[in-house]
Amino acid sequence: MKNKIINRRNFIKGGLGGAVVASQLKGKESQAAGAFDHYPDSMGVLVDVTRCVGCRSCEAACNQEQGLPEPEKPFNDYSVFDEVHPHGGHGREERRTTEYNYTIVNKYNVPGVDHPLFRKIQCNHCLEPACLTSCFVNAYSKTPEGAVVYDPTVCVGCRTCMIACPFYVPTFKYGSAFKPRIMKCVFCHETRLKEGRPPACVEICPQEALTFGKRTDLLEMAKSRIRSNPDKYVDHIYGEKEAGGTAWLYLSPVEFDKVGFDVHVPHEPVINFVRDFLSIVPMVLLIWPALFTGFHLLSNRKDAKSQHDEDNQEV
């Protein structure tokens, strides 16, 4: 953080030229994307889809903990699972997180499974969050505890984070003209995680479908669950590699796309896709001026020469 402040100050001191933008960009980029080793002791949550029974307690607890607006239906009303085209997405058939709820549970009837499966959705708190790397006002930060938190006081409302998030998590208060902001799960960072306590949804979960712990421990735990129950789980931990790794990890009894996961999410941080462009920036800034001034001199020389030739002819 201190480093960041110093950077900013130098930045302003150094003037507003493009070259400075480039050097800053290069420095920050390698720091943010290349050499960054993640926080080794950061926390996470392991979601076991086999355990969730769809009681919606997590939704209720989240709503209370975060002081979110009143829902349309009580949280023990299970008819929401059968809603098609609920509000939040115009063409989306499923329920999704909206500006009114940071987490929701969806029901899936999977052929071959005799009971419905449930999947909880919330921010996955990526290790290298796309929202963070795409934000041009640094509104996002990844805390050492593992949460990806958002600062509404600097947000401009460009919504690039929503474009960048591979999990479609950040939502925007479109209904507010004067105080719009991004709404998304913050891992109960301020109220709980900071003190080492699990988020409200984990604490309320009766089935321990949500296991809170160090991400490294959770990965081990997930692997051992798969190992000791190979028939019960698909051999994949969603979130181990997806989007470069997420704090929230998932185990499922069926292929992940059958319970609503996007299995096309790349297995590397989103910033990797942007790097190619970022790397050309300093090159353009350094090479272009010389190149084009050179062209100019060349073409002027031609002018001068033809002028000279003409003069000669006249003589």
Partner: peptide, 25 residues
């Protein structure tokens, strides 16, 4: 469910009354 549970689940006497206010579009 105790009263506190109903409060959290927005159930019983805490059930939401306003409907269709949300979304805006």
């Amino acid at each position: 469910m105790k009263d506190a549970g109903k409060k959290m689940f927005k159930a019983g006497k805490y059930a939401p009354v306003s409907k269709g206010e949300k979304g805006g579009h």
